[in-house]
Simulated scan of single mutants.
Amino acid sequence: MAQQVRDVMTGAPVTIESLASVTEVARRMRDEDIGAILVVEGEQLQGLVTDRDLVVRCLAEGRDPDQTTVYSVCSGPVVTVQPEDDAAAAVQLMRSNALRRLPVTQDGHTVGVVSIGDLAIERDERSALADISAAPPNR
């Protein structure tokens, strides 16, 4: 039986408003122990920002993280999937777009995120990526 995205996604995604500063999003990443946060404007998904985005698009460019908005450094446009989509289709979408994470939306609301780690744990729990993804975060 085909597995749906809802079966592998991480629910309750962390979001941040698009006009928040890079400093604020970095603190949220630290506090939440995550490397990516969904960027929203109200209820509308605008992008996804990763810790790498903060380094490459803000710090390495000499921009002031207190004055730089998260929207100006986030990745977009956003490719999304729905909870009822086939997980194999999500894998193909990630592969064809070179993505590590896909926001999951339903009725215009973000309901989760599916990552390559989530998929690795479900598809081959003995793989190195699954082991790494299931491990507790480094502190």
Rank of each mutant, 00 (worst) to 15 (best):
D118E: 08
R100E: 10
Q46M: 14
G112M: 03
D85I: 04
L93P: 01
E24Y: 01
A12Y: 10
V79N: 04
A130H: 08
L119T: 10
P65D: 09
V39D: 00
M1E: 11
C58E: 00
V39T: 02
A12C: 06
I132V: 14
E32I: 00
S21F: 08
D64F: 09
R52Q: 11
A98C: 07
I37Q: 01
R100N: 12
S72C: 05
R52S: 09
P83Q: 08
P83K: 07
Q106H: 12
V81Y: 00
D31W: 00
M94L: 10
D51K: 03
A12R: 15
S18V: 01
Q82N: 11
L102I: 06
S72A: 15
V8P: 00
S18Y: 04
L38K: 02
I132D: 10
P136V: 11
D124L: 09
M94Q: 07
E24N: 04
G11I: 02
A60K: 09
E17V: 04
G47Y: 03
L59D: 01
V81W: 02
D31I: 02
I121R: 15
D124S: 11
Q46E: 14
I37K: 00
E43G: 02
L102P: 02
A26N: 04
R57A: 07
R57Q: 10
I34A: 01
G76Q: 10
N97F: 12
R6Y: 12
A12M: 09
T110Y: 00
V5G: 06
G11E: 13
A12Q: 13
S72N: 11
A98W: 06
T10R: 08
E32P: 00
M94E: 07
E32A: 14
A88C: 03
M9P: 09
T10F: 03
D64Q: 11
V113C: 01
E125M: 06
D33R: 15
V49H: 01
D7F: 07
T110K: 00
E32Y: 10
S133G: 15
A135V: 02
R28M: 12
P65I: 13
M94R: 10
Q92V: 12
T80Q: 07
A89Y: 09
Q106D: 14
S72F: 04
T68C: 11
S21V: 08
I116V: 14
V49L: 04
D118Q: 05
T80F: 06
A128M: 12
A2M: 12
A134P: 01
V104H: 06
D31G: 12
V49T: 11
E125F: 10
I121M: 13
P77V: 06
L102G: 04
V113F: 03
V91L: 13
R27E: 12
R28H: 06
P136Q: 08
T15K: 05
